[in-house]
Each structure stands twice: as C-alpha cells, then as structure tokens.
Nucleic acid binder design. Structure first.
Length: 373
DNA sequence: AATCCGGGGGC
DNA sequence: GCCCCAGGATT
C-alpha cells in the first residue's frame, strides 16, 4: 500500500559534520564562566561517581549541601562498601530517591569484589554497576578517565535541541537516538570531560528552560531556535500530568519521652530501609482514624485506641500530593500490645529521631512535634 | 517503549 | 502551585 517504506521520522543529521567552532566556543566560555564546584577539583573516579549519582534528578544547589560531608564520611569506594546501610541512608536523608543511595552502596561493594576497589574504565563494565546508566557511564568515562564518551541529560537535551533546532519529544526514541548520536559526534578527543560538563553548565546557567540568557550564550550566532524564534518552544517536552491526591494516616505511640517508629522492609516498594511512624493509606470509605488504627496493627502488631489528631503535613512529590495526618494512639485496654518482638520496630527518644533516616513527610512530622522552635 | 520512582528548589 | 532537575530500573 504505502509507497514510502520508511518516512524519516527523526530530524536527520542537521549537522552531518558538526561545526568546528561549537567546541571551541563552548570550551572557551566554560573556561571563563564555569562555577567552582567541589567535585570539579578532582579526577578521583569515586568522587565523580558520587557527584553524578547525587546529581541525578537533583539540582546542583541541593547536592552542594551533601557532597562534601558524604566524601568526609565515606572517602573511598572501600569506605562506602564497608559502611552499614543505615549510615548510608542517613547520609542521604533529604536527597530523595533513596534507591540511588542503596544502588551506590551496592555498586561500591561490587567494585570491591569484582574490580579490586577501582572503578572500571570500560563503558560496559560501568554500565553493569547498579545505578549507572548511559548518562552516568558517559560522565564517569569522560570526566574521570578522559575517554571520548558522550552524555545526554536534561541540560544537553535543551542546548542541542535549541542550537540545532530539533523538533519532537526528546524522550521518545527518534529524537533520543539522534541526540545521543549528535552528542557523540560533538564530543572531542581532547577534553571530553570538560566539554560534557560545559554543555551541561551552559544548559544550567544560560540556556535555561525559561528566560534563557541568549545574549550571554557562546553559541548564539549559530543557534537555530534563536534564529527561528523557537527558543521558548524547544525542547518539545510533553505536558505533565497533575499530581494525584493521597491521604495517609499515621499513629503516634508515645511513651514518656519515647516514641515508636518502624523501619520499612528492604523489599518495600518505596522508602525501603527508612524509618517512619507506622502509617497506612486511607482507603476509600475509611476514616483516617480507622486507617491510623490499622497502621499500628499492621506495622507493629499493636492494638491501639486512636485519639486526637496532633499534626498534619502536606508533601508534594513528583506525581503525588501526600496528605499525612498523625494521630495520638494508645494501647487498647486489656489487650497486650506488640506481643511479638519485631526487629523493625524501635522505641526511641524523640531527640534520637534525628539520627534515623526518615523520608521527607515523616521527617516533617517529627520536626513539627519535637524540634524546639 | 512506557511506567515508575514517594525530593526539592526556583520562580 | 507549577515546572524542572547532571536518570535508572523495571515491566
């Protein structure tokens, strides 16, 4: 039926041969305007690895508060491999996406076991480590090992889509593939790590999502989006879905200065290994009070009588708006509470809550309740 | 190839 | 409140 066998969906090599001045201009700009970031002073592959994992889905300003203290606490792959998971999660507390920390930890142990404690240079070996995908492998290979490896992240997508006028959804295969290919053609043999960082730096500080500072851009003379007035339209990212509301109720079992918290199982779908107040999602046709009672029963095996609501926090995360309510709870009379010993239940002093890794909504509750103002 | 992941900052 | 952020793993 169709005459044309394959329409060229992807914007075919807009730059069959990348302009030579792209690299020159970009690196000259980077040498002059780059920010002085703590992980830029080193080529230590471990430090590069840590910074790249922290920077996944996380802005530089946030990572700045964690990177140096992490490196002091776990100065080497071996130090991290030796660490207990609880300490690793605690050091990560507040960075979010905690599976990144668990994978980094598992990766460090794998590097010790399989690679004698040294991060491997081979791209395929890097990709085999947990938590390292195409982006991070490219970052480590180019920055730490000086290999001519490309990388594509949100900043690179924006810079390239604008500079070369690339249409389409950059998360879908045709453009995605074109972006990786283009990045691979652009990255020079000479300073591949600096080039990649320069691309991201430009995206983070000049070629920003909104109100880009085109006047300050070293690539402005050749920028297709600027020429065509498409700067604000590119890249063509899909609209985001609205956050779904989730109601959650938690039980506060107080005991003098102590309070009960539970640690989520390693296989928990989220927040694995972190500590929370016993909580349960409020089901449809269920009251928050009933959910709080159920939470104490399911998480701790404690039959409780639920009292007044003592706190409420709202926490919006990527796709959910969590409304978390905390209810006072006391063991029901004539019923033994917590008959079984549960290793994942702890009775701690309120002040000690700060020493446990808690996810953001529960940490908010804890601080509301127990922190001096 | 689509979906999930349960933080947080900037504006 | 909305948008975006130095993504990776899972299905």
């Amino acid at each position: 039926m169709e005459e044309k066998p394959r329409p060229n969906a992807a914007p075919k090599k807009e730059a069959a041969r990348p302009p030579a001045d792209f690299e020159t201009r970009l690196l000259a700009w980077y040498d002059r305007y780059r920010r002085d970031l703590p992980w830029r002073g080193t080529q230590d592959p471990y430090a590069v690895w840590v910074s790249e994992v922290m920077l996944q889905q996380t802005q530089v300003a946030t990572v700045l508060r964690y990177f140096s203290s992490w490196m002091r606490r776990f100065p080497s792959v071996r130090a991290l491999a030796r660490a207990r998971e609880a300490d690793v999660l605690h050091a990560w507390q507040g960075l979010g996406y905690y599976s990144r920390a668990r994978r980094l930890h598992a990766g460090a142990r794998m590097v010790v076991e399989r690679h004698a404690g040294e991060l491997p240079r081979q791209h395929s070996a890097l990709l085999a480590l947990p938590g390292i995908g195409a982006y991070s492998a490219g970052a480590i290979a180019s920055i730490a090992f000086g290999e001519r490896a490309p990388l594509v992240d949100g900043n690179v997508i924006r810079v390239l889509a604008r500079r070369f006028g690339l249409r389409g959804d950059p998360n879908k295969l045709p453009l995605k593939r074109a972006l990786w290919q283009l990045a691979g053609e652009l990255v020079p043999a000479k300073r591949p790590g600096d080039f990649n960082q320069a691309l991201m730096e430009l995206g983070a500080t000049v070629c920003t999502p909104r109100a880009p500072r085109c006047d300050e851009c070293p690539l402005r003379a050749a920028c297709i989006a600027r020429r065509d007035g498409l700067v604000e339209q590119l890249p063509e990212l899909p609209a985001r879905a609205k956050a779904t509301r989730v109601r959650v109720a938690a039980a506060l079992l107080r005991d003098g200065e102590h309070v009960h918290v539970v640690r989520l199982a390693p296989e928990a779908p989220r927040w694995a290994g972190l500590w929370t107040f016993p909580y349960a999602e409020v089901r449809t046709e269920e009251t928050p009070v009933a959910a709080a009672r159920r939470a104490a029963l399911e998480a701790m095996g404690a039959d409780v009588r639920v009292g007044a609501r003592v706190a409420k926090v709202t926490h919006t995360i990527t796709r959910f708006r969590i409304e978390l309510e905390l209810y006072e709870a006391a063991p029901a009379p004539r019923v033994r509470s917590g008959a079984k010993r549960r290793p994942n239940v702890a009775r701690v002093r309120a002040r000690e809550l700060e020493t446990l890794a808690m996810p953001a909504p529960h940490r908010k509750l804890a601080r509301m309740l127990f922190e001096e103002r």
